[in-house]
Simulated assay, not measured.
Amino acid sequence: MGVLTDYFRAADDAAVLAALEDAEGGPLVGGARPVFDGVEAKGVDPDVVLGQLVAVVRGVEWEADLVGGAPVWPATPPPGREGPADEDDPWATGPWVMRLGGAVRDTLADLPQAELAAVAARWAATAEELPDADGDDLRPLVEELTGLARRAREAGEDLYCWICL
Rank of each mutant, 00 (worst) to 15 (best):
L111I: 07
T146C: 06
R151N: 10
V97M: 14
E82P: 06
W73N: 08
P74K: 06
T76L: 14
V119N: 01
D134Y: 11
A103E: 14
T93V: 15
R81N: 03
A114H: 03
G83K: 04
P112Y: 14
Q113V: 03
E82R: 10
D86M: 04
L130F: 05
R150N: 07
P71H: 02
A92S: 08
G147R: 05
A75D: 14
P95C: 01
D137P: 03
P95G: 00
T76G: 15
G102F: 11
T76A: 08
Y160T: 01
T146L: 05
P77V: 12
A118V: 15
W162E: 03
A127G: 09
E143Q: 13
P140F: 02
V119H: 02
A117S: 07
Q113H: 13
P78D: 11
E115L: 09
T146H: 07
L148Y: 08
A121K: 08
Y160G: 01
P140Q: 05
P95I: 05
A109Y: 05
G69F: 15
R105G: 01
E115F: 13
D136V: 04
P79L: 09
W91D: 13
A125M: 02
P84K: 06
E154P: 12
G156N: 06
P95R: 01
A75T: 15
L111E: 10
A152L: 03
R122F: 06
M98I: 13
A149S: 12
R139Y: 01
V104D: 00
D86W: 03
L108P: 04
W73A: 12
E154H: 11
R81F: 08
A120C: 07
V97E: 11
G147H: 03
P84V: 05
T93D: 14
